[in-house]
Design a protein around this nucleic acid. Structure first.
Lengths: 213, 213
DNA sequence: TAGGTCATGAGAAATGTTTCACAAATCGTG
DNA sequence: CACGATTTGTGAAACATTTCTCATGACCTA
């Protein structure tokens, strides 16, 4: 059953399971075993069972997991029972792409506000809302009780924007800015930097990494 | 010195160090200790020292690391000594944003080709090159000897595109498609799915994750 | 209903990763 | 030069994660 503390590495795998279960559910697959699920995801079945066991008992011996039920349980664990409001800071191409994708999918998240510094972008419609000036960030975030934000501003503005967000009360931040940013305790910060991903991929093209297989 | 096999978790931290060192170098900082670097990155100094020690001895006792020299060594380890050619498949907003960013930075990577299925996009200039039809993918990738690719196509096209890329000889793929994809051995595949990041962030807003501090 | 097959959940073992602790090297200062 | 303050690289220890193994329960078929 539920332990005192779940490690982040386990929490990060839940969305992976969720994504696959949502797909299977849409396909009408009624049940799946940890073995099959693991095969699809390139993960050992025992790991899936152990991960899920931190949160409860969701499977049936001899059968596996009910796809639709397990999907609901994982959504519940992750707190995705109702749509979560997200603010996007930075209405450049990346901010637009992410916002529009969230709007299109209409799953789990709602774009509640988009901010930019550039006057030319203010008023543009992105992700289904009008772009607001960054000066109004705190006011709007507090008024709409937004708790989560996506940052797609240039590196040199990232720390300043993150400070603004934290000051406004945001507790979870996903940054795409290619720079290290610090946040106070109590705020969760993830950084997605695709150039870092490319750089580590590059290592495996050198031949140095070949021994890994 | 160099061990037989370096774990992926270590390789993935090198770009983090590199990003910080590049910044410090630009700022004119001559040397940095593992303690200072760790403080900036939220990592323990001992971890940085151990990571680097897999590849050689780069520091001086009592001094720390020469920023410029260490930066060069890490770039060398990652195989970033010359620009690496990258193909981008999917010329939507995300593909454009990523391509244009790489073109703008002109660091480590060159956009050598951009592909799309949509005839309306063919010929558009993205990332400094003209968008080519996906039918020409294999021909162009082989002609230009492209070894790395970024995939920004919708989920339902991702596996097909990845198959094409692998068939054309690409050995490292960074996919932004929100779906599980399989690749044969010998091809390294990373998946960046920002909705999965948001979902795991959501967990820490539930209060369930509060115990983590 | 009995026997065979399948698949979970959980404890134990194996493996991997992070952190500690310290000898050795470097510098600055008196 | 000698000493104190730093800081690396590394082996050992601590900690975390993954994998194995197996008792148990569920279904199916005859």
């Amino acid at each position: 059953m539920r332990k005192y503390k779940i490690s982040e590495i386990v929490v990060k795998r839940l969305p992976l399971y969720l994504r696959c279960l949502t797909y299977l559910d849409k396909m009408g697959v009624p049940t799946i075993s940890s073995h099959e699920l693991g095969h699809k995801l390139g993960i050992k079945p025992s790991q899936i069972r152990k991960d899920l066991a931190y949160f409860g008992e969701f499977g049936k011996q001899g059968i596996g997991y009910d796809v639709s039920y397990l999907r609901g349980e994982i959504r519940h664990i992750l707190g995705l029972t109702e749509h979560i409001k997200v603010a996007v800071v930075g209405a450049g191409k990346l901010g637009q792409a992410l916002s529009d994708y969230i709007l299109l999918k209409r799953e789990d998240f709602d774009i509640a506000a988009v901010f930019d510094r550039d006057p030319a972008k203010i008023g543009m419609e992105v992700g289904g809302v009008k772009v607001s000036p960054i000066e109004n960030l705190k006011e709007i975030i507090q008024e709409k009780e937004i708790q989560m934000a996506i940052v797609t501003v240039p590196a040199n503005a990232a720390q300043k924007v993150v400070n603004l967000l934290v000051d406004a009360g945001v507790r979870g931040i996903l940054s795409f800015a290619p720079i290290a940013v610090t946040v106070p305790e109590g705020v969760r910060f993830y950084n997605v930097d695709f150039t870092m991903e490319l750089q580590s991929l590059a290592y495996y093209l050198t031949g140095q990494g070949k021994n890994e297989y």
